[in-house]
Amino acid sequence: MNTFTFSQATGVAAAVQDNAAHDGAAYLGGGTNLIDLMKENVARPTHLIGLKKLGLDAIENLPDGGLRLGALATNADTAYHPEVEKRYPLLNQAILAGASPQLRNMATDGGNLMQRTRCYYFYDLATPCNKREPGSGCSAIGGYTRVHAILGASEHCIATHPSDMCVALAALDTTVHVSGPNGERTIKFEDFHRLPGDQPERDNTLEPGELITGLDLPAKGFAQNFSYLKLRDRTSYAFALVSVAAALELDGNIIKDARLALGGVAHKPWRDKEAEALLIGQPATADTFRAAAAKVLAGAKGQGTNNFKIELAKRAIVRALKQATEMNQALDANAFQNSNP
């Protein structure tokens, strides 16, 4: 860990100014990822700007029927907020599938978007990594790739975004509010995280100094038919091998609207609108689900030790859609996969 200075920001504008005034500054939310990265010398900010005094932790209904999550609301407070539990249970499930209660108590919603990959090579300074040190090479390619991408990777980086919460936020069409040196703007969730391409050091489309201030969920929450299915190497406190956020609007057995997003498979939460289109208007049957799964994984490429994730992802999509369809029965057979309280 390097030496750094610290200031506690008292307002968004002041925080942004403080950031601009320091080379190598970083915003500090819950710190559940950044502090780890600093201890490992992966992140070496010279100046930390504490955000906990900003407020921005409210969760409030929006006039259009949506819900605003303050960027500083904790993951735990968000998951257990009555409006989230009632109207966005997919988000509740996704948050509770991640991390541990202690971490969720600390971690903020904005910080959840900003967490970095858990690629083993990114974390270990003994191995080259393009994300950590652009141009040094990707050690994961040809290596141990259990938590690595099967979709949208590049020759420079095969890292995945580790979040569960973000998979649900992607499925739910969230809008991200940011504030920066050039004022405020909004970013559609699908445009927030990016694929690695030839700039794997960039996880997202934030401009330097920009700060997430809130997340807006639209009114439609798919509270009737949804599933967040997470497959991992143990039942809790492990990152997803594959996770699926599935949400359906059903008219009888016909799918009127559908959302499908995957975690653990790409550099960003992987939402597939073409696969969603294949579901819409079709009967909610295994054949329909399999067609959608095949579409999502059509361009998938394994890295050797993670080849299995392609087949696992297909099966997980089919299962998640089935669970979303059969909400009442969804809990028994898969109680183990979603056994969080």
């Binding site: 083993y120 974390y123 191995t127 141990y144 938590v147 039942t235």
Partner: peptide, 21 residues
């Protein structure tokens, strides 16, 4: 990872042992 001769999952997050669940 034999290319590096190094154990790569050298932390509690990635060296998996059972959790209560």
């Amino acid at each position: 990872d034999h290319r590096f001769g190094r154990y790569m999952n050298h932390n509690y997050a990635e060296y998996h042992v059972p959790v209560n669940a």
